[in-house]
Amino acid sequence: MRIVLLNILLLFSYQSYSQKNIEINQKDGTQIKIKAVNDFEKLEITTSKNNKIQVIDSIETSISGREMHFAIEDYNFDGYQDFATYHLDDGMGVYTIFQLFIYDPTNSQFKQLKMPRNFGSECDEFCDIQINKKKKTIQSSCRGGARWHTDVWKFDKNKNLILLKK
């Protein structure tokens, strides 16, 4: 009986842990549904504002088959919910790699937030993201060789991502 209960608990835990669809309710009443297709091969996004489906097919998945996940957060501090896809790194699994997608309320679409290359950041992708809502910053920490590096990012008045500290 214990084994049956344990298997049921593990099955339930796995189903709730590996979420493949999310829903976001924006502050303007827009409802958004995001569906991961073929194990995050692409994302299909629908909104209550229109009947169009936005397809994002540039999702970086784990090459070693690590589980993909969603996170919902206001990454650019504009009051609208954005989302991220993430997975553990393919090495030792010591940090989490994120792709951030920013919501544009004017067209009800999401756009991937790319890390600017001309700022000389230590990390070449967003890792172990931490949000500081009070300072309106995004911290990204990665490992290079035997060292940990931390970059702190902020959006300027033109909504461009700039590096504050590396």
Rank of each mutant, 00 (worst) to 15 (best):
Met1Ile: 06
Ile3Thr: 12
Leu5Cys: 10
Leu6Val: 14
Leu6Pro: 00
Leu6His: 03
Ile8Lys: 15
Leu9Asn: 04
Leu9Val: 03
Leu10Phe: 12
Phe12Glu: 06
Gln15Gly: 08
Gln15Trp: 13
Ser16Glu: 11
Ser18Asp: 14
Ser18His: 15
Ile22Tyr: 01
Glu23Ser: 14
Glu23Gln: 14
Ile24Met: 09
Asn25Ile: 15
Gln26His: 09
Gln26Met: 03
Gln26Val: 02
Lys27Tyr: 08
Lys33Thr: 10
Ile34Leu: 02
Lys35Met: 08
Ala36Lys: 00
Val37Asn: 11
Asp39Lys: 11
Phe40His: 03
Leu43Glu: 00
Leu43Asp: 00
Glu44Thr: 10
Glu44Phe: 05
Ile45Trp: 07
Ile45Asn: 04
Ser48Cys: 09
Lys49Leu: 11
Lys49Ala: 12
Lys52Thr: 13
Ile53His: 10
Ile53Ser: 08
Val55Met: 11
Ser64Asp: 06
Gly65Phe: 03
Met68Ser: 06
Met68Arg: 05
His69Glu: 12
Phe70Cys: 01
Phe70Met: 02
Ala71Phe: 08
Ala71Ser: 13
Ile72His: 05
Ile72Trp: 06
Asp74Gly: 06
Tyr75Glu: 02
Asn76Gln: 07
Phe77Asn: 05
Phe77Tyr: 08
Asp78Glu: 11
Asp78Phe: 01
Gly79Asp: 02
Tyr80Trp: 09
Tyr80Gly: 03
Tyr80Leu: 06
Gln81Asp: 06
Phe83Ala: 07
Leu88Gln: 12
Asp89Lys: 04
Gly91Ser: 07
Tyr95Ser: 07
Tyr95Thr: 06
Thr96Leu: 08
Thr96Phe: 02
Ile97Lys: 00
Phe98Met: 11
Tyr103Asp: 02
Phe110Trp: 07
Lys111Leu: 11
Lys111Met: 10
Gln112Met: 14
Lys114His: 14
Lys114Ile: 08
Lys114Trp: 13
Lys114Gln: 15
Arg117Lys: 15
Phe119Glu: 15
Cys123Met: 05
Asp128Arg: 05
Ile129Ser: 03
Gln130Thr: 12
Ile131Val: 15
Lys133His: 15
Lys134Phe: 02
Thr137Leu: 01
Gln139Ile: 12
Cys142Ala: 09
Cys142Leu: 10
Arg143Tyr: 04
Arg143Lys: 15
Ala146Asn: 12
Arg147Ile: 08
Trp148His: 04
His149Gln: 08
His149Met: 14
Asp151Thr: 04
Val152Ser: 04
Lys154Leu: 05
Asp156Arg: 03
Asn158Ile: 00
Asn160Lys: 13
Leu161Tyr: 05
Lys165Ser: 13
